[in-house]
Computed example of a mutant assay.
Amino acid sequence: MSLKPGKKAPDFTLPSTSGKNFTLSQNCKGKACIIYFYPKDFTRVCTAEACDFRNLFGAFRNFDVAVIGISRDDIPTHLKFQKEYNLPFELLSDEKGNVCNAYDALIPLIRIPKRITYFLDKEHVVRAAFSDMFESKAHVNEMIKTLQSEESKKSSNS
């Protein structure tokens, strides 16, 4: 399961690799964003996913969409991960798993984040969600397809 498209995304505040707290309603005010939840830094699939977002970061920037990664890893681990893989976006630490839980991105009992990606529009309404625990590249590709579709809808309405 995931948050349903059309539902307002829950606001949250978490520590960030920027050195400041990140609050969705403030840091992405009036801006669309991709929020991707992932299990753990430095694991094979999570590293591939982060690198896929990094490699297509220019495309997300062209769509004027922020990219934010969230896991339960602490900030020192996120900073090492971000530096080692030259990630140009913020990573947020949800050590208690409360935000993961609010976004239906937490596996019950073992409380590890699921691999789930959300596209939120400028009002932070969920427009798309994609979940696949073992396939990282599909998350990035699905978000690019969603953004292209949104862009073509805007163009045809103009």
Rank of each mutant, 00 (worst) to 15 (best):
68 I>M: 07
138 A>I: 15
52 D>Q: 11
43 T>V: 08
124 H>Y: 11
129 A>F: 03
41 D>F: 05
30 G>P: 08
34 I>S: 04
135 E>G: 00
59 A>R: 04
42 F>M: 11
61 R>K: 15
14 L>S: 10
60 F>D: 11
52 D>I: 00
63 F>L: 12
41 D>T: 09
101 N>G: 01
144 I>R: 03
78 H>T: 09
25 S>N: 14
54 R>T: 09
74 D>A: 09
30 G>N: 12
150 E>F: 08
61 R>C: 10
64 D>H: 12
74 D>M: 06
99 V>D: 02
113 P>Y: 13
99 V>L: 05
87 L>F: 08
140 V>F: 06
57 F>A: 12
148 Q>D: 14
50 A>G: 02
57 F>H: 15
144 I>S: 02
61 R>Q: 15
11 D>L: 12
46 C>T: 00
100 C>I: 13
120 L>V: 07
98 N>W: 09
23 T>Q: 15
112 I>L: 15
156 S>Q: 15
129 A>I: 05
152 S>D: 14
67 V>Q: 01
156 S>G: 08
90 E>H: 07
128 A>P: 01
67 V>P: 03
54 R>G: 12
7 K>L: 10
115 R>T: 03
104 D>P: 00
143 M>W: 05
25 S>Y: 14
70 I>Q: 03
144 I>A: 06
12 F>A: 04
125 V>E: 14
129 A>D: 05
21 N>G: 01
8 K>C: 09
44 R>Q: 13
43 T>E: 06
68 I>T: 02
104 D>T: 11
74 D>C: 01
21 N>F: 12
43 T>Y: 13
80 K>L: 11
152 S>N: 14
154 K>P: 04
86 N>M: 06
9 A>I: 00
66 A>T: 00
114 K>C: 04
127 R>N: 12
151 E>Y: 03
89 F>N: 00
2 S>K: 03
146 T>G: 01
12 F>D: 03
77 T>N: 13
80 K>S: 13
102 A>W: 06
136 S>C: 00
12 F>Q: 05
16 S>P: 07
132 D>M: 03
11 D>W: 12
82 Q>M: 08
27 N>F: 04
102 A>H: 05
29 K>P: 04
7 K>P: 03
138 A>S: 10
60 F>A: 11
34 I>L: 01
134 F>I: 04
151 E>Q: 13
77 T>D: 13
